[in-house]
Every structure is written in structure tokens, then in C-alpha cells.
Design a protein around this nucleic acid. Structure first.
Length: 283
DNA sequence: AGACTCCCCTGAGGGC
DNA sequence: TGCCCTCAGGGGAGTC
């Protein structure tokens, strides 16, 4: 499910209920998600104040007053939703434990934050805040596409001489962090580049042009509250709606949206995942 | 090093 | 209605 825009949307939605607030109690309803939870996770969360929340790639990070940072990954089907807000800000109330509600945070302010993940590809961990960036899941990440470290030279260097298809390269979290299948497809459509194109054979100007396109695709998606296919929900339970503006993703057999193109959207499989593109205007 | 494949897991949707 | 098959937004591990 969640790529950078969805994780950013969830994190922003959680902030009003969690940032600066105390976790009175955490209910941990199973021993693991993708990996075992850290030792005594419920105890280490209970009574802690959340000092700040941020996003790195597809991870949500919450710095606690204990000197530890809670790391959350939503995997493919994970949701974090807020209910029980005493201000009535969140009308999506589900007071009972539903199927796949694996972790529930009870906030001192009355909010209840529920982590629900049917497929359990998600993850949670606790790390030392001071050395969080060197955590093995974070240390391997490339620059944030919306940050200053992501620029034309970075991509030109990363692509130089490599035979990887551009689809695979943009999915590589070590080259650029946070893109997933949907936004890579949409990016390549806007750039007019075929997903099969070897990165080493894309001219430097076309590589450079990817930078603002990637940023704009992500900003557009964040502004739309992310994309909801099957699973994604914002923290208040609402759908995102960027999926209504997909140019190629999920549009196999439908007409290309580029003005005057007249092509048809194709689907191919690359490294086990579907790529959608117009073979006529993406070269 | 780089490029594959497989796998973790549940649920939805299509064909019959 | 039900069964079986395929597929899904991520990403780590293992292999060549």
C-alpha cells in the first residue's frame, strides 16, 4: 500500500493526537509483525511522551522522552487510525478491537491510535534516538526526494553506466527513498521515459528532468491525501483520492492521456511487479 | 556488484 | 454459493 505520500498523510494525521502527548498505555496483541516486536515494547511505550514525529522514506518515526524512537512501517496493508478523540475531531469511531488490530496506543488526551495490518508485512521497532539514522533499515536509504540532498547530480551519478531498467532504479530505496510502484509508473509517464529504458542510456538532461517531476508527483499525491486502492486510509479513516488522477497505473488497455498521443496503456512485468506505460509516448 | 527469484501474509476479485 | 487461481501499494534474504 503505502508509498511516501501515503505515509506522509498518515503521519500528519497522527500528529494532532500524538505529538507532544503521552501514551498512557500500549496494547500489543501479538508477538510480531514481519519481525518480532522489540523486547518489552508495551512497557517501553507506556507512560512515554511523544516529543516529535517525522517521516523517513516509508517509515514513521516518533521520538519519545525516554530517548528511544518508535519506528513504524505500514508494509502493504497497514493502517494507523485515530478514534475516540475527545474533541470530536475524528468521527470514525471503532471502539472495539477489530480483526488485525495488532497494536493500540491509548493516549492521555483520550485519543486511541490503532495499528491494523491484515497482511502483517508491517513492522515496529524501538531504537536509540541518538543513533536512529544508523539503524539497519534507515542506514541503507538514499536521499528524501522532497529534501535538499536529492538533486540532478545525485541521479545522474547514480544512473551513470548502469544497465538497470529505470523502473527498477527508481524503486531502489538506496538511490531514492520512498517511491513505490504507483509513483514510479506515474513519474515515468510524465517524463515520457519507458520503464524498460536502461538508466545508463538516458541522456543527462532527461535524467535531470526527472527530479522536478518526481517531486511534483509526490506533492500532488500528498495534496490529494494519498492514493486509496484497497487498503489505504488516512489517519481519520478517510480515503485518499489521488488514484482518480492516475495517468497510467491500473489503466491497462485504456487510452493514453497525453494530448494527441492516441496510444494505449500497456502492462508489463518487471522484477515481479507490474509496470504500466504508454509504449507510444514513453521511449 | 548487480540482477533475479522467492517469500512473508491475508483478502479481493474473476472465472467456472 | 463456493472453489480455485491470480494478484496486490514493500522489501529482506538468498542465489547466480
Amino acid at each position: 500500500m503505502p508509498e511516501l505520500p501515503e505515509v506522509e498523510t498518515v503521519m500528519r494525521g497522527l500528529q494532532p493526537s500524538m505529538e507532544g502527548e503521552v501514551i498512557t498505555r500500549a496494547d500489543v496483541n501479538r508477538p510480531d509483525l514481519r519481525w518480532p516486536f522489540p523486547d518489552r515494547m508495551a512497557d517501553r511505550l507506556s507512560g512515554r511522551r511523544v516529543l516529535s514525529m517525522r517521516r523517513r522514506s516509508k517509515y514513521i518515526l516518533a521520538d519519545l522522552d525516554s530517548g528511544e524512537t518508535l519506528l513504524v512501517h505500514l508494509g502493504m496493508s497497514g493502517r494507523m487510525t485515530v478514534s475516540g478523540d475527545p474533541l470530536g475531531q475524528f468521527v470514525h469511531a471503532h471502539p472495539q478491537i477489530a480483526k488485525h488490530d495488532h497494536v493500540v496506543f491509548h493516549m492521555e488526551n483520550g485519543a486511541r491510535v490503532t495499528f491494523n495490518d491484515p497482511r502483517r508485512f508491517g513492522a515496529m521497532d524501538l531504537l536509540d534516538t541518538a543513533t536512529a539514522d544508523s539503524h539497519k533499515l534507515l542506514a541503507v536509504l538514499g536521499p528524501e526526494p522532497l529534501g535538499n540532498d536529492f538533486h540532478e547530480n545525485h541521479l545522474v551519478t547514480a544512473f551513470k553506466g548502469r544497465k538497470t531498467p529505470v523502473k527498477s532504479a527508481l524503486l531502489d530505496q538506496g538511490i531514492i527513498a520512498g517511491l513505490g510502484n504507483i509513483y514510479v509508473c506515474e513519474t515515468l509517464f510524465r517524463a515520457g521515459i519507458s520503464p524498460r529504458r536502461e538508466v545508463g542510456k538516458i541522456s543527462a538532461p532527461r535524467v535531470a528532468a526527472l527530479v522536478p517531476i518526481i517531486r511534483q508527483v509526490l506533492l500532488d499525491a500528498i495534496a490529494a491525501g494519498g492514493s486509496s486502492l484497497k487498503d489505504f486510509r488516512q489517519a481519520n479513516g478517510e480515503l485518499g483520492y489521488f488514484q482518480h488522477t492516475f495517468d497510467v497505473y491500473g489503466r491497462e488497455g485504456e487510452p493514453c492521456r497525453r494530448a494527441g498521443c492516441g496510444g494505449t496503456v500497456s502492462r508489463i512485468t518487471q522484477s515481479g511487479r507490474s509496470s504500466f506505460y504508454c509504449g507510444k509516448c514513453q521511449r
